[in-house]
Design a protein around this nucleic acid. Structure first.
Lengths: 195, 195
DNA sequence: GTCTATAAGGCGATAGAC
DNA sequence: GTCTATCGCCTTATAGAC
């Protein structure tokens, strides 16, 4: 297993991991390159050897998220039935309830922040969201629903909205309750599909 | 109608209104006091005469939002039936779908950004959200549901999650579809309450 | 009471030393 | 190939002129 060209010692990886954590906790604008360098154990100002610009580093974080989402969905695909896959998905957000109550959903908050910049070339921060919506749509289609896209949006909106409210109220129980609600809704979908 | 002590000419009001708009479109961190002053037609640097600090101005924006929410809920209270009140509420977000697709829900994005700062004294950015959740809970209780709080969270999570996805996908139709979905769900609640 | 000039600090980014 | 010293800009905030 060889390292990629520019990343001997894994410093590049540490920078991306540290940036992902700080971006989640403080947001893009409030996170300085000095912060990231410190967390990653890299000399401050040296970040530019690994990333041409701050936006490049943010883009790398989004790409990492997309990879993690791909890995998650692939893992869930191993489950035998669509309804179980969907419930396993929503339970992932329940498992993250503590960190969500503190800092929000990493995917949702980053996408929101990226979408509000009027930069010309913006990273597609919505890619992880699109991946999940497409996958959920596929699962719901397997359940036999006609309007799978709309139902996929409603399900993931329930997750993201639950995360937003849990964060605003700083209450992990909000996420738990919302996940329970969605699990029951998934059961309803599965029952409707069978009838 | 006299002006408030420090606001002859309405400059203070113009500053808050301009700040509300910029905070919604660019976020807190990306909005400078110079930007706000320019939009409000006030000399740059002079903002400090009206607000002791930038955070004070943000706080004023949140207070304004809380007032607008109070006005909205009072207006909806005039409708005769709880289910109609709830549907009128969600239709407000549908009416804002274009601006939501561009910059997100003003309440949700501001609350999210405020919640991620580790400042000691933070403004309670969740106040408008709490107001709405409490009011929705009251309406659902009137429909005869047992777990009104959980259902209120699910309903408003659907709105906020729909707004987040509409923003991420930059597609107003996402908000419209989600509102339709929620309207049908409200009808279901009303029917269950009647049975 | 209203506004201007300016200070103090922090930021992303670069040039070039090792 | 790796890192450091430093630049120039922008931002909040203040002191004091009008």
């Amino acid at each position: 297993m060889t390292d990629s060209p520019l990343s001997r010692g894994g410093k590049r990886e540490r920078l991306v991991a540290g940036a992902a954590d700080l971006l989640h906790r403080k947001g893009i604008a409030a996170t300085t390159l000095a912060d990231i360098a410190q967390v990653a154990g890299v000399p401050p100002g040296n970040v530019y050897y690994y990333f041409k610009t701050k936006d490049d580093l943010v883009k790398a974080v989004v790409d990492t998220q997309a990879g993690q989402v791909t890995a998650l969905l692939t893992e869930l695909d191993a489950l035998p039935r669509p309804a179980e896959r969907l419930k396993a998905l929503v339970r992932r957000w329940e498992a993250m309830r503590e960190v969500i109550a503190r800092h929000g959903c990493p995917i949702g908050t980053l996408a929101t922040e990226l979408d509000r910049r009027d930069d010309g070339l913006d990273t597609d921060g919505a890619q992880p969201i699109r991946q999940i919506l497409d996958w959920v749509g596929t699962q719901i289609r397997l359940l036999g629903a006609r309007n799978a896209r709309q139902l996929a949006i409603s399900l993931f909106a329930g997750i993201q909205g639950g995360a937003l409210l849990a964060n605003a109220l700083r209450d992990p129980a909000v996420m738990t309750g919302q996940v329970r609600h969605l699990e029951r809704w998934i059961d309803t979908l599965a029952a409707d599909g069978r009838s």
